[in-house]
Structures are given as structure tokens and as C-alpha cells.
Amino acid sequence: MKKQLLHVFRNTPFGREVLMQSAYFCRKTDTLLRVYIPRFRQFLMYFQHEIATIELDKSFLRDPQTAQEHAEQIIRSEGLKPSFLTPKRYTASTLPDIPIDFDYMTCPRSISDLSTRISLGHLGPKVRVIIRNAHFPVLIPTPVYKQWNSITVFFGGSRNARKAMRVGAELARVTGMPLYVFTQAEGRPRQYYERSLVEGGFEDLLKNKSFEWMFFEKGKVRINFYQVPHDSLVIVGAYGHGMIKEVLFGSFMEEVQTVLPNNMVIVGPEVAM
């Protein structure tokens, strides 16, 4: 069955770039692009343990007359068929419920605050709520349209990193792009990471050397990040170690999203293995 990506369209130049990113992703991965053009300031996503109330910033509702037309243009220019999502359910008459049975969702770095705050190192609170709850990976594109030609998975050996690996391997398979794996050994031997890969069911990849392993035993992560190709789609797992440690020490995902300007796919804790 064809996979589906959910995109919330905003009818602004910035929104155009973001939609172009989604369209590029969908074309490369043969995914169906489903676009929601908001009609209300809020929508709800009923996740398993939490309702995410997404307050959109005002620019999402701008000029609704041309929104559909603009979106169609962008989608067709990537050679895809437009498919729009109309919410079927409403919690209240001005509060639509957006379904969650997608395989990916595109979020700009911030969805609720003004779209000017799209700098690196900032992920809006609502985007975090989605990442924390969604069973699908979230695509966070660069603010300006940028194509990517390879996939880089950040692999730190944890369970969540294995999820990221699975997503990355799958994307590399469908796109036919080269796969890189970035590992910063935090004092652990290489065997540890190899064993984790085997446990995660990536034995074949490891044996056939289907990916190029950027394995760093030395140096600071932030400096080694420079080795990540600029035109690579970065896959990173979020919230691998339990919330308290994350809050205190920050997570690897935060590190990545603060430093790397690449297109990113964040694999949250609820994504199935």
C-alpha cells in the first residue's frame, strides 16, 4: 500500500518552500502527498495518550481563496497528483480533528509561533508534542527548498536509534540513494554498535556493506557533524533515554537539530520498531 505524508499547507512564500520540500520527499520516496489546508486556527490530533492541540500561526489561514490553487501548482510541478484532506470529524464546530494514520508528517520547525522563528536550534512546543506522540516519523525541512541526494542515519546504538536506522534503510531502499551512518562512539567499542545493528535486524546491511559508516572515535560531535554531506537527508531518533535525562543533559536529537541545517526526519519514541 502506498505510504502517505501529511502536510499542513500555509499559503505564504515560506509555506511554498515547505510544500516543495514535502513534494520532493514524496516524489523520491513514492509517497502520497496529502495536503490539509486549514480553515480554522486550531486542529486536534488524537494520539494514543494525548490530544495534541495544534494552534496554527495566523499565516496558515491567509488568503484561503488562492491556497488550494497554489498548493496544486506546487504539487503538479513535482509531477504528483494533488490530494487534499478534508477533516471528517470535529470535536467542536470550529475544532476539526485531523486523522493520524499517516506514515510521515511534515512540520516546519515551528507551527504555532510566528513563522519568523525558524532558526536552527528552535523546535516549537507543538512540533515537540507531535514528535513525542506520533507513531510516524516527522519530516522537518529546511526553511528554503533544498534537494537531498543521500540519507544519513545518526546511530547511537539505542533502541530509538535502531528505529531511525530502520526508517533510514527503508528510505534509502525506495529512493535508491546512498546510505550513510553517522556514529559518535562515546567511549564504546565498535563491536557494541555492530551488535546493536545485528539485534535490530540489520545484519544483512552490515554484511553487505550497504552503507558507509562514518564512525568517529575521537573529536567532538559538533565538529564531526561537518562530515555529514550537505545534501543529505538526516534521520535521527528522538527521546531515546527517558525524559529526565533528556531534560537535564539534552538529547542527541537536540544537538543535531541545533547544529545541522539539513533536511531532517525525526523518529519519535512512539514510532513502531
Binding site: F40, R41, Q42, T53, E55, T91, A92
Partner: peptide, 15 residues
């Protein structure tokens, strides 16, 4: 509060 819901009880029943 940014709560766009209605009067309440129908929302509870819906939920």
C-alpha cells in the same frame, strides 16, 4: 486559554 471548543457536554459525549 485558546480553547475553541463548544459548551462542553457534547464534547465530553463525543470524547
Amino acid at each position: 486559554a485558546k480553547d475553541y471548543g463548544g459548551h462542553g457536554v457534547p464534547e465530553v459525549i463525543y470524547s
